[in-house]
Design a protein around this nucleic acid. Structure first.
Lengths: 338, 338
DNA sequence: CTGAAAGCGCTTACAG
DNA sequence: CTGAAAGCGCTTACAG
């Protein structure tokens, strides 16, 4: 810092206006002065003051990313950095910067969102949230602040959002287990707060219905979505005196815990029980047995979220857009019964 | 946005100066006017313009976090979000915001660091880097820009940095394996670019020396540090016709891959080969067998990094500070020979 | 093609 | 205890 547009102007014997225009590639500046100015900028290692520019422009080219942190452990889940990397990648190409806020409760989220939107520090917000009730969403809509949600929201037609088709994902996974010969399939990790789990459950039920398998509520276990609670959830099922032939867990981590419990109780995966997860964490491939999962393409989720934000920023016609990111079933040993 | 300090001033029948002072809790403002002003601020939902304030203050209360992204997959490693969460947590308490930049090469890092430091957008930088040669470090020092490195740098006495004591970590882990009866211990994942791996190797060698075990260079395998390359690295060792009684991998992910290869070759962990990793990823506990590792307390690394930045910002006496975050050996089944 | 001037929304030294 | 004014470093409509 230190060297300002004024310094450049003096050194180049022009006005600050001209320097500003040269930098902005304003075509009204002659090639000659432009060259002279750029040479001096180089020599003096001048970088425009981002803050002053933002104040004059009433736009910062900064996008706020708000994440639910500690409480849900979402931050620790491998898909989180992947989403962030996706956002950052597209943001970078568009000369945007990313301000990241980790919040620990809906109250804190509300406060942060209030500040980010009102203080002029961000041009838009990307919310990593798939909660059923998220007051920030309606707030953002009310004040017409540009934002995109990663995770299908309740009022999906009044919001810009990006997500996988989790109903279809749940369906495909269930169908896969049925194809493998499972009929009594446990479903672990439903959480009424998270739409993603409800959607996957919906797909599960649809697949069962399509194959004339009645839904057995005893096989559906509520629990934390992203956590190491799979061990406990699996225990709950076995404690009911049921040994399902298949298990679907809402996240790979749940599946790992479930498998651990099964092994401890003398049940082999996949031969006694086929087990699958979702989200294809890096380790699924190294687990014993390698875990069948679903690749949700988190990088693309993030990248697309930013693209949606940009599209909104550049269009004068207001609309609510959504993008569905394809997900692929990754079949591994944990569901391949011999 | 929209409502400015001027609007508040008019509504309160005072000058903008007075509003500004009231907000800043300047004691010269009477309790009465202060109350009046705050009431109106509340009513009109006024939030000071962060950008204007920053321009006037010549300080943004934003800290830039620079991460090596794609290439090294560091972003995907669970310790990364943990570090970030630690930084965010302390930053939040100090009313700082975090701007995150993911870079894909040293060149890109250089460019981003140049921009972050020169454009006035950040008050300081936290670099997540433990590379042996990082030109950004000397650059930041040269221009005397406030910064903290997570990861011990080469010129450790001229830099603010935070890290574990990786030599000691390597020593402890090696000693643990020796105590378990291993004498020929392979060391996987040394990478001359990353000081952390060199430090752990150093500790390994020291432990061997202290127990009168000669170093066998054939047991030391270079490779990517954070990746899923453990399978290949383990193969390299066995291909030499060596079956070590113990294996230390520089990261848990490497250890997972190594175990997979051992298993495929009929070797049981831990009875035939004891295996340990570092960094205690969430899954180590669920792996079969549960993996011995080292908890590096990544959250604390991040939190402390920000504290170091704050300490530097608040002190008029320049100094180079470092903080060593304690790490704990987490002994699990993978190294417990019967 | 270029410049002088006003303005973005704050803060703060100076004056009273 | 409060206000008028200058300034932070840019951008841009207006004028030439």
């Amino acid at each position: 810092m230190g060297v300002t547009i004024e310094d450049i102007a003096k050194a180049a014997n022009v006005s600050p206006s001209t320097v500003s225009r040269a930098i902005a590639n304003n075509p009204r500046i002659s090639e000659k002065t432009r060259k002279k100015i750029f040479k001096i900028i180089e020599e003096m290692n001048y970088h425009p003051n981002y803050i002053a520019r933002s104040l004059a422009n009433k736009s910062t080219n900064i996008v706020g990313v708000v994440v639910m942190g500690t409480t849900e452990k979402a931050f620790q889940h491998p898909f989180f950095p992947e989403i962030l990397r996706g956002i950052a990648s597209v943001a970078y190409k568009n000369k945007y910067k990313i301000l990241i806020s980790s919040v620990n409760s809906l109250d804190e989220e509300k406060q942060i969102v209030g500040e980010l939107t009102q203080s002029g520090i961000t041009d838009g917000i990307i919310l990593l949230s798939s909660r059923v009730k998220d007051p920030s969403i309606s707030y953002l809509s009310d004040i017409k602040f540009p934002y995109v949600i990663v995770g299908r929201p309740e009022n999906e037609n009044e919001v810009n959002w990006v997500d996988n088709d989790n109903v279809s994902i749940g369906y495909k996974m269930t169908k896969h287990l049925i194809d493998m010969g499972c009929t009594d399939i446990a479903f672990l990790g439903v959480n009424s707060e998270f739409i993603v789990t409800l959607d996957r459950l919906k797909g599960y039920k649809m697949a069962l219905a399509d194959h004339n398998i009645p839904v057995d509520e005893k096989l559906i276990v509520e629990g934390k979505f992203v956590d190491d609670a799979g061990y406990e959830l699996m225990k709950k099922v076995l404690d009911k005196g049921i040994v399902p032939s298949g298990v679907i867990a809402c996240d790979d981590f749940l599946a790992f815990g479930a498998i651990k419990y099964l092994n401890e109780n003398g049940l082999k995966v996949p031969d006694d029980v086929a087990v699958a997860g979702f989200n294809n964490v890096p380790l699924s491939n190294y687990f014993t047995p390698p875990l069948t999962s679903v690749e949700i393409n988190a990088f693309s989720l993030g990248a697309k979220a930013f693209e949606l934000f940009m599209a909104g920023a550049n269009s004068e016609f207001k609309s609510f857009n959504r993008a569905i990111i394809p997900a692929e079933l990754v079949i591994r040993e944990s569901t391949q019964k011999k």
